[in-house]
C-alpha cells in the first residue's frame, strides 16, 4: 500500500501570538515550529501502523521552503520512509491543495492522510480540496481507519455521534483524535532520519484564491468578578440578570 501523509508545520502551542508590518504579518521572531499535532499524532502515526500491518510505504509531503526541513526531518524520525517538499511558501489552502494534488496524481497513492486542521490557520480546507482535485471520496474527521485489501472502514464524527462507513481505496482521510497515539521518536529514529531521502520538487505555482490582509488580537478581558464560594445564589443571579446567559 502506498500511503501519502500531508505534513505542515505550526507554531509551538504555547507561542505568544503577535503581528508586525502594521498587523499584516505574523511575527515569526523567536517562534519555534513543530509538526502540526493533528498531522503528526494522528495522520502520520496511523499511516505507519497501517504500513506495519499491511506492508507498503509512507511518504510525507509538505508545501514549504527550506525552513520547513527541520519539521520534515521530525516526521522522518517518527518513521516515514521518505519525504517530499514542494518548494513554495504555503500561503493559501487552494495553492497547497493544488500543489499536493499535482504531485499525488503523478505518483499515484492508495491512501492520502492529513490532520483534521492546522493549529495556526485552522481552515480544515486542504483535505476536501485535494479530494476534489483527485476526484476521490473524502472522509473528514475520522477517528478510526482500518484497511482490508482495497476496502477501508472508518469511524467519522457526525453531529451528535459517530458513524461507521465503508468505501474503496484510493481515498483521502482527515484524521482526528482517537485515530492513533502520539509516538515519541527515539535516538535510532532521529539518527536514521538524517540519511532518509528528502526530495525537493519544483512548485507548479497555481493561483492563490485567498489572502490574509490584516490580523487583530481579541480585546483583553476585563477583571474577573470573584464570587463567595458559599453563595452560589449570587452567581446564578448574576448569570441571569447581568450576563443574561441563563
Amino acid at each position: 500500500m502506498k500511503i501519502l501523509v500531508c505534513i505542515s508545520k505550526a507554531p509551538e502551542t504555547t507561542t505568544k501570538i503577535a503581528f508586525t508590518d502594521g498587523d499584516t504579518k505574523f511575527d515569526e521572531n523567536g517562534v519555534k515550529y513543530i509538526v502540526n499535532p493533528y498531522d503528526e499524532w494522528y495522520a502520520l502515526v496511523r499511516g505507519l501502523e497501517l504500513k506495519e500491518a499491511n506492508g507498503g510505504t509512507v511518504t510525507t509531503v509538505t508545501v514549504g521552503t527550506s525552513e520547513d526541513d527541520a519539521t520534515i526531518r521530525k516526521a522522518l524520525a517518527i518513521g516515514a520512509d521518505d519525504a517530499v517538499r514542494i518548494d513554495a511558501k504555503a500561503e493559501d489552502a487552494y495553492q497547497v491543495a493544488t500543489e499536493i494534488a499535482n504531485y499525488a496524481k503523478k505518483e499515484g497513492f492508495d491512501l492520502v492522510l492529513l490532520g483534521k486542521e492546522t493549529i495556526d490557520y485552522n481552515g480544515s480546507q486542504v483535505g476536501g480540496m485535494l479530494a476534489e482535485h483527485l476526484d476521490l471520496p473524502f472522509i473528514s474527521l475520522a477517528s478510526k481507519l482500518d484497511v482490508d485489501g482495497s476496502t477501508a472502514t472508518l469511524d467519522k464524527e457526525i453531529v451528535g455521534g459517530v458513524q461507521t462507513v465503508e468505501t474503496n481505496l484510493p481515498l483521502v482521510v482527515s484524521c482526528a483524535k482517537g485515530m492513533a497515539e502520539q509516538r515519541i521518536p527515539n535516538m535510532r529514529g532521529i539518527m536514521a532520519a538524517r540519511s532518509k531521502p528528502l526530495k525537493v520538487v519544483e512548485a507548479s505555482n497555481p493561483n492563490k484564491n485567498t489572502s490574509f490582509e490584516k490580523y487583530a488580537l481579541p480585546a483583553p478581558k476585563s477583571e474577573v468578578k470573584l464570587i463567595d464560594p458559599e453563595d452560589m445564589d449570587q452567581l446564578v443571579e448574576l448569570l441571569h440578570n447581568e450576563a443574561k446567559v441563563i
Binding site: 491543495a97 480544515s124 476534489e132 473524502f138 484564491n209 485567498t210
Partner: peptide
C-alpha cells in the same frame, strides 16, 4: 459544521471560488 467542513472545500475547487472557512 461537520458537513460544511467536508463540502465547502470540494466546491471551492469544483467551481473555482475562494473559500473563507470559519
Amino acid at each position: 459544521d461537520l458537513v460544511g467542513k467536508a463540502v465547502a472545500p470540494r466546491l471551492s475547487v469544483k467551481i473555482n471560488a475562494g473559500l473563507v472557512a470559519g
